[in-house]
Amino acid sequence: MEVTLRPLTRADLALLGTWLREPLVAEWWHDDPNPAALERQYGPSIDGRDPTVLRMGEVDGVAAGFVQWYRWADEPDWAAELAPFLRIPDDAWSLDYLVGEPTLRRRGIGTALVRAALERIGPAPVVVPVQAGNAGSIALLRRAGFAVVAHADLEPDNPAHGRDHVVLARA
């Protein structure tokens, strides 16, 4: 299976909002799916005013998921929170991903999304903190070539989760 990545556009925001309402996605992303909130969050990157790279993942021309990647250097507050637990290389990146279409989950699409993003990031280090209870995401990252490098006490994306995080890095 081949996943292709294309830039996220404003026309994709409604679909992304639908995906963010999916119970499994909402559990871990906990983002506001309303149109105005999506515009505030993703509009600056779509316009090139924020360096975060936003991509829709497609399988056979059908939108299946979303992946974003960003330099830790561009997220200094987030990097500072992680710093007591792990030295982040100056050129390191991180990423977030989701498979939005429920019927396409558990088919390797998430792993393919991450691998496609890694190809575009290139050889730079990639460091991804994951809430410790998200066993599926941890397993996916391991399948994509990541290894656990630290455990950290970090603010969770979803306030219902604990602060325990597993930090993985591309091996």
Results as ranks from 00 to 15, higher is better:
His30Tyr: 14
Asp31His: 09
Asp32Pro: 02
Asp32Ile: 03
Asp32Tyr: 00
Pro33Ser: 02
Ala37Arg: 00
Leu38Cys: 04
Glu39Ile: 02
Glu39Phe: 00
Pro44Lys: 05
Gly48Leu: 07
Arg49Glu: 14
Pro51Lys: 07
Val53Leu: 10
Arg55Glu: 12
Met56Glu: 02
Glu58Leu: 15
Val59Ile: 11
Gly61Lys: 06
Val62Met: 12
Ala64Ser: 11
Gly65Met: 10
Val67Tyr: 04
Trp69Arg: 07
Trp72Arg: 07
Ala73Leu: 13
Glu75Ala: 15
Glu75Cys: 05
Pro76Arg: 08
Pro76His: 07
Asp77Ala: 15
Asp77Ser: 13
Trp78His: 14
Trp78Met: 14
Trp78Asp: 15
Ala79Met: 05
Ala80Lys: 13
Glu81Gln: 15
Leu82Phe: 09
Leu82Ser: 08
Leu82Met: 11
Ala83Val: 03
Ala83Phe: 02
Ala83Trp: 00
Pro84His: 05
Pro84Met: 08
Pro84Gly: 09
Phe85Ile: 11
Pro89Trp: 09
Pro89Tyr: 09
Pro89Arg: 10
Asp91Ile: 02
Asp91Gly: 05
Ala92Glu: 02
Leu95Ala: 08
Leu95Pro: 03
Leu95Asn: 05
Leu98Ala: 12
Leu98Thr: 02
Leu98Gly: 08
Leu98Ser: 04
Val99Ala: 05
Glu101Val: 12
Glu101Gly: 01
Glu101Lys: 00
Pro102Met: 01
Pro102Gly: 03
Pro102Tyr: 02
Pro102Ser: 03
Pro102Lys: 01
Thr103Phe: 01
Arg105Val: 05
Arg106Thr: 11
Gly108Phe: 13
Gly108Tyr: 13
Gly108Leu: 13
Gly110Met: 07
Thr111Cys: 14
Val114Pro: 10
Arg115Glu: 15
Ala117Gln: 04
Leu118Asp: 08
Glu119Val: 14
Glu119Trp: 00
Gly122Cys: 12
Gly122Thr: 11
Gly122Met: 11
Ala124Asp: 13
Pro125Asp: 10
Pro125Gly: 09
Val126Gln: 03
Val127Ile: 15
Val128Lys: 08
Gln131Pro: 00
Gln131Cys: 11
Ala132Thr: 06
Asn134His: 15
Gly136Ala: 15
Ile138Ala: 12
Ala139Ile: 03
Ala139Asp: 11
Ala139His: 10
Leu140Lys: 05
Arg142Ser: 09
Phe146Trp: 06
Ala147Gln: 12
Val148Gly: 00
Ala150Cys: 11
His151Trp: 06
Ala152Trp: 08
Leu154Cys: 12
Pro156Phe: 05
Pro156Met: 09
Asp157Cys: 13
Asn158Pro: 03
Asn158Lys: 05
Pro159His: 10
Gly162Ala: 09
His165Leu: 11
His165Glu: 08
Val166Leu: 08
Val166Tyr: 03
Val166Cys: 09
Leu168Phe: 02
